[in-house]
Simulated scan of single mutants.
Amino acid sequence: MEVKVKDRQSLLDMAVQTAGSMEAAFGLAAANGVSLTDTLTDGQVLDTVAAENADTVRRYSVQGIQPATALSEEEMAALAQEGINFMGIEIDFVVS
């Protein structure tokens, strides 16, 4: 079966939605020739894998839940200037 990716959905989102568990992301990645960390595009079609938790899949389907937890381009840009690589000693990073 195939499923279309919605905006800001990650492979982990798709694994939970279509197979009922995050562990299914490994099989989903292998089945589609992508990495766990690849950015999926809106409208991209993925082959699904066997459901590991049918109750979760059914609940998501009935309630129309389509998780989308990937960061947007704006959110990624905002994060780019943070962290240890961007700190100046005695400016942002105080040594005591």
Rank of each mutant, 00 (worst) to 15 (best):
R8P: 08
I65M: 11
K6N: 15
L40W: 09
A19I: 06
S96T: 01
A70H: 01
A31C: 02
Q17M: 14
A15M: 03
S72C: 07
E74Q: 13
G27T: 00
V62E: 10
M14F: 09
T69K: 00
D55A: 10
T37Q: 11
V62N: 03
V45T: 08
K4G: 08
K4P: 10
A31R: 11
G20D: 04
R8V: 03
V16P: 04
Q9E: 02
M14C: 04
T18M: 14
E82S: 15
G64A: 07
E23P: 02
L36A: 03
V45K: 03
G27R: 02
P67V: 10
A77D: 13
K4Y: 15
N53S: 11
G27I: 00
E23F: 10
E90I: 04
V57K: 05
I91L: 08
T41S: 15
L12K: 04
A54C: 01
A77I: 00
V57F: 11
D38T: 11
D7S: 05
F26L: 11
G64F: 11
D47L: 15
L11F: 13
S10L: 08
S35H: 05
L36K: 02
E82A: 14
A68Y: 03
E52F: 03
A24T: 02
I84C: 11
T48G: 07
V45W: 05
E90C: 14
E74G: 10
V95E: 05
S61F: 13
V16I: 14
A50Y: 09
G33W: 12
A50N: 12
N32D: 05
T18V: 09
V16S: 10
P67M: 10
A15V: 01
S21H: 07
A68Q: 03
V45M: 05
L36N: 06
Q9A: 02
A54F: 02
A29Y: 00
G33F: 10
A51E: 08
Q9V: 05
R8T: 06
E74S: 13
G43Q: 07
Q9T: 02
A25D: 01
T39D: 13
M22Y: 12
L46G: 06
A29K: 04
V3C: 07
Q81L: 06
M22E: 15
L11S: 02
D38F: 12
L11M: 06
E73G: 07
M22V: 14
Q81N: 08
Q63W: 06
T41G: 11
A30P: 00
A54N: 07
M87K: 04
Q66D: 07
M14Y: 07
A25Y: 03
T69A: 04
L71D: 06
I91R: 06
E73R: 12
S10A: 12
T18G: 05
P67G: 10
S96W: 03
L79N: 10
S61I: 04
S10Y: 08
A25I: 00
A31K: 14
L71V: 09
L11R: 03
